[in-house]
Design a protein around this nucleic acid. Structure first.
Length: 277
DNA sequence: CCTGAAACCTGTCTGC
DNA sequence: TGCAGACAGGTTTCAG
């Protein structure tokens, strides 16, 4: 489910409260419960329980789509994949909810629940977060990432732009929704090869990515179906899941196609195929 | 090295 | 109503 804006919203809620939960910074872990073995990538649950008990949550940050929970001497990283979510339960804590996979109990009676219907989500407890996030590309909001750098990086690859934007080692944080929305806003066809973009187009694309993500964060991300609650950005989709609806710019019906095994939405008029003159 | 397909999972919706 | 099939916010693995 969650892409950068949804993960950012969750991180802010864990840090400052919101989405029905209290801040968890400063809380001390008492123990943990793993309800689906594969959810914990590393270490073994036995070691995990020993290492996480009695530690205090120092900070919570985001890297790409990873939630990074800073503990005294280690880091708990969580990737929500398609259907994961994090929930704070106040005391008195009730029995686990349906699809809860990993529970972390605090000494003050609160509980952090990693809930994940489809079981794709993963957690890692590591001494250095880079062990997990080392292969990620730059953050879209990295102020040192200039349009000219972005253009050069696009030139070096020869891949369909939609697939390249989904590649987390190229740029960290975009998923299916925000690539479609960003490509629409920059007027670029999703199947264009990355090395055919002009420097102007690269600049427009980077700005569109940043504008789209900022707007989505301002709306607390997007909520679709039963997955992820509290966001409102789904009401602002221009093309994602708008197949057949009129383009908000030119009224041409939005089309759907498959690019790199992913459903892709675009306006055939605003995002013409082929390289412009 | 690269690309594309399959795998990992559960739930919802559509069409016959 | 039942049931098969498609599809879903992501990533890793494997075959070629």
């Amino acid at each position: 489910m969650p892409e950068l804006p949804e993960v950012e919203t969750i991180v802010r809620a864990l840090k400052h409260g919101g989405r029905g939960g209290a801040p968890i910074i400063g809380k001390k872990v008492s123990d943990a419960n793993l309800l689906w073995d594969k959810t914990l990538s590393t270490p073994s649950f036995e070691k995990f329980e020993g290492k996480i008990s009695k530690t205090t949550i120092k900070d919570i940050t985001r890297r790409g789509k990873f939630v990074v929970i800073h503990l005294d001497n280690e880091f708990l990283l969580i990737h929500l994949r398609m259907s994961g979510d994090l929930r704070i339960d106040p005391p008195p804590v009730l029995p686990p909810q349906n699809h809860d996979r990993l529970l972390i109990y605090f000494e003050d009676g609160y509980r952090l629940a990693f809930n994940d219907t489809r079981k794709f989500g993963r957690a890692w407890l590591v001494s250095n977060p880079e062990i997990v996030t080392g292969n990620l590309g730059p953050e879209p909001f990295d102020t040192t990432l200039m349009a000219s750098d972005f253009y050069m990086r696009l030139q070096r690859k020869k891949k369909q732009i939609k697939s390249l934007l989904l590649d987390q080692s190229f740029l960290a944080g975009l998923g299916n929704i925000y690539t479609d929305e960003s490509l629409f806003r920059s007027g670029i066809h999703p199947m264009r090869l990355s090395n055919t973009l002009s420097s102007k187009e690269a600049e427009r694309l980077l700005k569109a990515i940043r504008d789209t993500l900022n707007e989505a964060i301002a709306h607390n991300g997007a909520s679709i179906d039963w997955v992820y609650r509290g966001g409102e950005f789904q009401n602002n989709f221009r093309v994602y899941q708008q197949t057949g609806n009129p383009c908000p710019v030119c009224s041409t019906p939005i089309q759907r196609l498959v690019v790199g095994q992913r459903g892709t939405h675009f306006c055939p008029k605003c995002q013409p195929e082929g390289v412009p003159e």
